[in-house]
Design a protein around this nucleic acid. Structure first.
Lengths: 221, 221
DNA sequence: GTGTAGAAATACAGTACTGTACCTTATGTT
DNA sequence: AACATAAGGTACAGTACTGTATTTCTACAC
């Protein structure tokens, strides 16, 4: 038996663990779905489980979304907004300063705001199941690498060496995320100049890589 | 219609696409499962689909395996044999020569024999769903990184710089696989010395990285 | 109070899969 | 010929989902 029903038109419906009835929105479903996507992968994003998590029935989901596909598309839109747009914005930058541009690129990752490494990783996994998506992911990888490449060119590296250094930096970044590597901030600070030296190579002394203000706890540099 | 049926007690049963009746073995199921795992991820490894692929019913699967879990364990065993054992074998090596040891480690990846990048990637994905497995994968990552670290130490780098260079090399390797990066061999050969220079840094001139004999088409160096 | 729209429930139909128990067929051995 | 064994088939039971159509509840507007 349900405990206390309030007298008239009970302002809370039945019992939804939380505060004041706060009904579900499309955004709430989306946010929950994103969490699952990031933690468990796209295959685990199930209407069923999301509904159970919210303690409502699946009927509610279909009020907000036309189908699972609809939800999937929305998740991809989020990936584009959060993880692609910041790089797209740099695509047409001209007259760049090598170290500064490099720093700007890297800090999209380091700041993790809005960029989400877990989302990036999850979408990459997801893309292995979908032809179209894998093309899109590959295009995004190409863009990111080519931005890095331009920064190395601007530092004075040869075309070939710029390509290689861009790849090392980028692959390294992706691998770092793939391992969900964690390390305490003190260690990271100690290693930072060594990373800089190793990745940027002999042509650059101090590239002006700043710690992201107010965000020391994330990122790697 | 299948060509030649032999006269008495037909040695082929009905029609199994292939040659001479070659009935399915546990190994055949395992190999097919591994292919799916590598291409599509563990979530797509379904008894159902494997059986359809072989054009037999699931009943057959349960003759060879006690359960799906059984198959999963076997897949993990394969990963351990193929992708872990080569590094385990180096764990206790002593009195190492830096560049040579580095080369030896890297060539496990480059030769891709028996090492399978796709399997490694798939198991890494898989591990995100399982606490125990993720611990095992993390331990393997640690081992691989520490081997690289030892090679850099032996080259004369400081403790800190050895750590950082080992990580860069390893993360880079993992990222490279995560992107399923493909490039034609000519390009790769051109970039090889630049990679060597960038990854191994100023303390090493020519590390004796050889092309893997008879295996020029794979790997990256 | 009545109406309305947003949010959720209910009921139903169907698919894709795991697992289990038992049966059949081909083949090789003695 | 009788038998054992390997491989596969059949049938059933159950779970975990997606999707659809319809209905109920609730807040708020008037």
């Amino acid at each position: 038996m349900k405990t206390e029903r309030s007298t008239a038109r009970s302002p809370e419906k039945r019992d939804r663990g939380g505060a004041q009835r706060q009904t579900l929105s499309r955004e709430a479903w989306l946010a929950a779905a994103r969490k699952v996507l990031e933690k468990r992968g796209i295959a685990e994003v199930k209407i069923d489980r999301l509904a159970r998590h919210f303690k409502v029935t699946r009927g509610s989901f279909y009020f907000h979304f036309s189908s699972l596909k609809d939800l999937h598309n929305e998740l991809l839109e989020e990936w584009r907004r959060i993880n692609c747009a910041p790089f797209e914005a740099m695509r047409h930058e001209t007259d760049i300063d090598g170290p500064k541009f490099f720093s700007k690129i890297v800090h999209v990752w380091v700041d993790e705001n809005p960029f989400s490494p877990l989302l990036d990783l999850a979408v990459r996994d997801w893309s292995r199941a979908s032809r179209a998506l894998s093309k899109e992911v590959a295009a995004m990888d190409d863009l990111r690498i080519s931005l890095l490449e331009r920064s190395f060119l601007a530092m004075g590296y040869s075309a070939d060496e710029s390509v290689v250094r861009a790849r090392i930096t980028y692959f390294h970044q992706i691998g770092y995320y793939a391992l969900s590597f964690k390390e305490d901030p003190a260690q990271r600070r100690r290693y930072r100049p060594i990373y800089v030296k190793a990745l940027l190579g002999p042509l650059v002394e101090e590239p002006g890589l700043r710690e992201a203000p107010g965000n020391e706890a994330t990122g790697r540099f």
